[in-house]
Simulated scan of single mutants.
Amino acid sequence: MFKSGFITIVGRPNVGKSTFINNVLGQKIAITSPKPQTTRNNISGIYTGEDAQLIFIDTPGIHKPKHKLGEYMTREAINTLNSVDLVMFMVDATQKMGPGDKFIMNELKKSRAKVFLIINKLDLVEDYDKLKNNVGEYKAEYKFDQAFAISALNGDNIDLLLQDIKDVLEEGPKYYPDDQVTDHPEKFIISELIREKVLRLTKEEVPHGVMVLIDSMKPAEDNPNLMEISASIIVERTSQKGIIIGKGGKMIKEIGTQARKDILHLIGTKVFLDLYCRVEKNWRNKEFHLRNFGYQDDR
Rank of each mutant, 00 (worst) to 15 (best):
K121M: 12
L193M: 12
N282Y: 11
F6S: 03
V135D: 06
T39H: 03
E228A: 02
R237F: 11
K114S: 08
K247Y: 05
L117K: 00
E107C: 04
I150H: 02
A259F: 03
Q53M: 09
E76Q: 10
I245Y: 00
V24I: 14
N120K: 08
S151C: 09
E192Y: 05
G246W: 03
L25H: 10
K197P: 08
I150W: 02
P99I: 05
T8C: 06
K64N: 06
M90R: 05
K35T: 10
Q258N: 10
F288H: 12
E254A: 00
D167M: 15
P185Q: 10
L162P: 00
V271Y: 00
G249T: 11
I150T: 05
N282P: 04
A152F: 00
E228Y: 02
F103N: 05
T48P: 08
N154C: 13
P99S: 10
P60T: 06
K250W: 10
L273S: 14
I244R: 02
S33Y: 12
N282E: 11
I234P: 01
D222S: 15
Q27N: 12
I244L: 08
S83D: 11
F6P: 00
M73K: 04
Y176R: 04
L162Y: 12
M251S: 04
I245C: 03
V206T: 10
I104E: 00
I252L: 14
G98L: 10
P13N: 06
F188Y: 06
R278K: 15
D297T: 05
I245G: 01
H67L: 05
K130Q: 14
L226D: 07
R112V: 04
K132N: 12
S33F: 11
P34C: 15
F293M: 12
K253Y: 02
N154P: 01
G155I: 03
A52G: 11
I62M: 05
V212C: 12
A140K: 12
D129R: 14
D178E: 14
G5K: 04
E236T: 02
P219V: 02
T182C: 06
N282I: 09
Y142S: 10
E50P: 13
L193N: 02
D183K: 03
Y128S: 11
E170K: 13
V271N: 04
Q37L: 09
T48N: 11
L153V: 13
N82F: 08
N23F: 13
S111T: 07
I119S: 02
E228H: 07
R260V: 02
K132F: 09
H63Y: 02
E192L: 01
I62G: 01
G45R: 03
K218T: 10
G26F: 13
K166M: 12
K114W: 01
D167I: 11
F89G: 07
S230K: 14
G98H: 10
G242W: 02
I7T: 01
D179E: 15
R284M: 11
E236R: 05
P99C: 02
D262N: 09
E204R: 15
S239T: 10
P99Y: 09
K174D: 06
